[in-house]
Design a protein around this nucleic acid. Structure first.
Lengths: 140, 140
DNA sequence: ATATAACTGAAAAACATTATTAATTAGTTT
DNA sequence: AAACTAATTAATAATGTTTTTCAGTTATAT
């Protein structure tokens, strides 16, 4: 069950069972679920939870840097409990989103600051293509 | 006024004044406008145009690779008539989105295919930070 | 234990996007 | 050039997502 409660306390967020359950769900998957999927999972434990609570909670978690929000064209926002910056790849056929680990990202911030004059805080790299399962199917 | 009509014809898209005007708007700006902004601009020329037409048209243009769609967390979809892959930077204060030119991207696809086993078709790189105008203001 | 400020659940509201439909138009055929 | 046909448009309704509101409840500090 992880130490989600402790994580909330460390961020100065008031601990409620709903919040801990939502954070548990996100820490317990690599699927990058959207709000609706999170809602369905937390509901198993808290049948009376409201979708609005899930919306409010993920927004709070993003603000507190407990999770990060991923943006996919033509899809709902999806959430990832791994907050360190890392690229993702989305399958254009089945819609799954996976982490890409062991990518050194530091080198990519500095040249962008040089080129733009911006103070850059974070970046989001999203690849789009066909996953191992779908790429054969798409050959038809 | 560019050659937007010719571009539509080359893609086998039926040419209408509304479509040419929408493509003109996108080719005439580097602001990466969303649907509502495009609508307001085309309205100056076609006061009776419908927002639904703008939605359908940008969707058609994206499918035809005349424009690309950009995804920003917590914002509407935005559109860019420069379809070659290039990174963008968004100001977290004023919301503006700029192109980053002269970035060599090729090297970034291959290692991702190796790491994931995906057939990758495109990628989207979005930096988030504070632009030259806003970064001073944010120091307060 | 009590107080209080914050949180939850439910519903309504706001907002963004898509679907429907009758009238119009573009591009083709005659 | 007129007629034909299929596609497009504008308007509106419908849908889907996210945010707001608010009364009742709960977590934390005292």
């Amino acid at each position: 069950m992880y130490h989600s409660e402790k994580m909330l306390r460390e961020k100065g967020i008031k601990v409620t069972p709903q919040r801990a359950a939502i954070l548990d769900v996100l820490r317990d998957t690599r699927e990058h679920p959207g709000v609706e999927v999170i809602y369905q999972r937390v509901k198993k434990q808290f049948p009376s939870i409201s979708l609005a609570t899930v919306y409010k909670t993920v927004e709070l978690f993003v603000r507190s840097n407990l999770i990060q929000e991923l943006c996919l064209t033509g899809d709902v926002s999806r959430y990832d409990a791994r907050v360190e910056s890392h690229p993702h790849v989305a399958c254009m056929n089945c819609g799954k989103v996976e982490d890409i680990d062991n990518f050194d990202m530091e080198y990519i911030i500095e040249p962008a600051e040089q080129a733009t004059g911006y103070k850059i805080l974070k970046e989001e790299i999203m690849y789009f293509g066909y996953c191992g399962d779908c790429k054969g199917v798409m050959d038809n």
